[in-house]
Design a protein around this nucleic acid. Structure first.
Length: 353
DNA sequence: AAAACGGGGAT
DNA sequence: ATCCCAGTTTT
């Protein structure tokens, strides 16, 4: 048996029962692959079925307002993925009559589809012999071939794609690819790999050299700066809470939050930038992103916020807050100020009508 | 080549 | 605290 055969045999015996594997049609596979970018399986599970129920076809997604799409994505992160998928669905309607193209070049031309996603969807849904290289596969192959350089550098990168290509050149490329990812997720883990359970242990160069745990060697990330943000918790005459929609570009694009601004320091005076007047002590909420940390100082405030730093503002009754695509920091701020909300990622969140 | 882009779980 | 994850796009 070839290595790829061994992988497929292992995969068929040990694969997890995941929703997108029960329904390997192109659209669900595509949605799952986008959601799974930089995102763990456990985080995707609550979103996947709900998203497909609401947007069962590319045409259904293409016809939806972007705010509905963002509301369905709220809490998953990397919101540009949702915008690209929305745009790609419209491209599929325009260019391919609403059918996901069974054609790697046509598929790769769609918004948000890079080499990984193209290989994954086209191999799993259509059987094209294309490789995938994600964080899991990268780790498996770095160990299998004992790649000691930083795998993100160009030369090792090419070699890893070539190694993945050789494996995917198989009668069942979709299963080979999923086997590599499954192996990385469940056996060839970053720390404490379970080599005794691995179908590739006999041919693994890193294991032979005793360095499996040390690979891959990646450069450290830079420290994140902390940014001060000042926000106001204000209510209108009906006790509804004022929220503001972020710009359509950049961080948390198009999501709703408490009206506020980035400021050089904490201070109620900064609320004037969004048309509010505040008082009292601030409630401090911290939120870490990949590349920065927000220290949000939330003040009780009065007035009607302006749109100087936002695309829209509206006052929303507390019970209706979960229908909006709220930012993580906004959810934390509201809870810290005593506003009752569903706890993490709103599992009964209803669509915005 | 580097930076931007979320959030959560594991260690 | 740090690392990492079924990555892609923009600068």
């Amino acid at each position: 048996m070839s290595r790829a055969d061994e992988l497929v045999a292992w995969y068929r015996a040990h694969r997890r029962d995941l929703p997108w594997r029960r329904d390997p049609r192109p659209w669900p596979v595509w949605v799952s692959e986008i959601m799974l970018q930089q995102t763990r399986v456990e985080s995707v599970l609550p979103y996947f079925a709900r998203f497909l129920e609401r947007f069962p076809t590319p045409a259904a997604l293409a016809a939806a307002p972007i705010d509905d799409v963002l509301a369905a994505w709220a809490g998953l992160g990397y919101y540009r993925r949702a915008r690209h998928l929305h745009q790609a669905a419209q491209q599929v309607v325009e260019r391919h009559g609403g059918e996901v193209p069974d054609d790697p070049a046509a598929f790769a031309a769609l918004a948000g589809v890079g080499r990984y996603t193209c290989g994954a969807v086209q191999s799993i849904a259509f059987g094209h012999r294309l490789p995938v290289l994600d964080g899991n596969v990268e780790r498996v192959l770095c160990r299998l071939h004992r790649v000691e350089e930083d795998p993100r550098a160009p030369a090792p990168r090419r070699r890893l794609w070539d190694a993945a290509s050789a494996l995917a050149d198989h009668a069942h490329p979709g299963e080979v690819n999923q086997a590599l990812m499954e192996l990385g997720a469940t056996v060839c883990t970053p720390r404490s790999p379970r080599c005794l359970l691995c179908p590739l242990q006999a041919g693994c160069a890193a294991r032979a050299a005793g360095v499996a745990e040390a690979l891959p060697r990646k450069a450290k990330r830079k420290a994140r700066p902390t940014i001060t943000v000042v926000a106001g918790l204000a209510r209108d005459a009906d006790d509804a809470i004022w929220v503001a929609r972020r710009p359509d570009d950049g961080l948390l694009a198009g999501l709703w939050e408490l009206p506020g601004v980035e400021a050089p320091d904490a201070g109620v005076r900064h609320l004037a930038a969004v048309g509010l007047v505040g008082g009292g002590d601030a409630t401090l909420v911290e939120h870490g992103f990949t590349h920065r940390i927000w220290a949000v100082h939330v003040y009780r405030a009065r007035g009607t916020p302006t749109t100087a730093h936002h695309t829209a503002v509206r006052a929303v009754p507390e019970h209706a807050l979960p229908t909006l695509a709220l930012t993580g920091p906004a959810l934390k701020a509201l809870r810290a100020c005593g506003v009752a909300l569903p706890h993490r990622r709103g599992a009964g969140r209803k669509p915005l009508s």
